[in-house]
Simulated scan of single mutants.
Amino acid sequence: MRNNKLKNMIICSMFAAITAVLAQIEIPLPIVPISGQTLAVGLTATIIGSRLGTIAMLLYVAMGAIGLPVFAEAKGGVQVLVGPTGGYIFGFIITAFVTGYILEKTKFILPWAMVANTVGMVITLTIGTVQLKYVLDMTWTAAFVSGVAPFIVVGLIKAFLASWIGITVRARLQSANLLPSLKQSNQHTA
């Protein structure tokens, strides 16, 4: 039991760190940059599921909140979380849970992973755009143009990559007995 807790803590820490690293891969845009964060969230949920994925994202947000430079552009601090892009970061927590949950209730196969990661993308963009709108006092149209439109195509590409890579890595980690088994009965891998 204690060994499993330690293993889960290490797994969550690793995925929080992976998210911090991928956050530094970015394409700057005027208000909200395109970054590898959302790819990392999708990978996290696809590989380790809803519970551990959510914990990993909570850890990631906490690391940034205390000032570690883990967010895009090597930023950190509460000011980022309450700023224009903070909603996207908070959205990662819900996205990780929902993406992992969909896979746990269906199958860990590429088509379902694509559905789950696309739903996750919509959640992140929605929460992010709501905060963007209110923090910058934008109209809904302006918030959509700045906070959603530039990310739809790249978001679908990242959803596919998170699905494909995530399902592949998950299957290999499970076959090597390196992933804790999830409690849901419908666990299938590709």
Rank of each mutant, 00 (worst) to 15 (best):
N3Y: 05
N3K: 15
K5H: 07
M9F: 13
M14C: 12
F15R: 03
T19L: 00
L22N: 09
E26Q: 13
G36T: 06
T38Q: 13
T44E: 05
A45T: 00
I48H: 04
L52R: 14
G53R: 09
G53H: 04
L58V: 10
A62F: 12
A72R: 09
E73Q: 15
E73P: 08
A74D: 07
K75D: 06
L81I: 06
G86Q: 04
G87S: 13
G91C: 06
F92L: 03
I94D: 02
T95F: 09
F97T: 10
T99I: 09
G100P: 06
K107F: 13
F108D: 08
F108N: 13
L110C: 02
W112H: 15
A113S: 14
A113V: 02
A113W: 01
V122S: 13
V122D: 01
G128W: 02
T129N: 04
V135L: 01
V135W: 09
M138V: 00
F144N: 03
V148E: 09
P150M: 10
F151K: 12
I152D: 06
I152R: 10
V154S: 11
L156D: 02
L161F: 10
S163H: 04
S163L: 04
G166T: 02
G166D: 01
R170E: 00
A171E: 09
N177M: 05
L179F: 08
S181L: 14
N186H: 05
A190M: 15
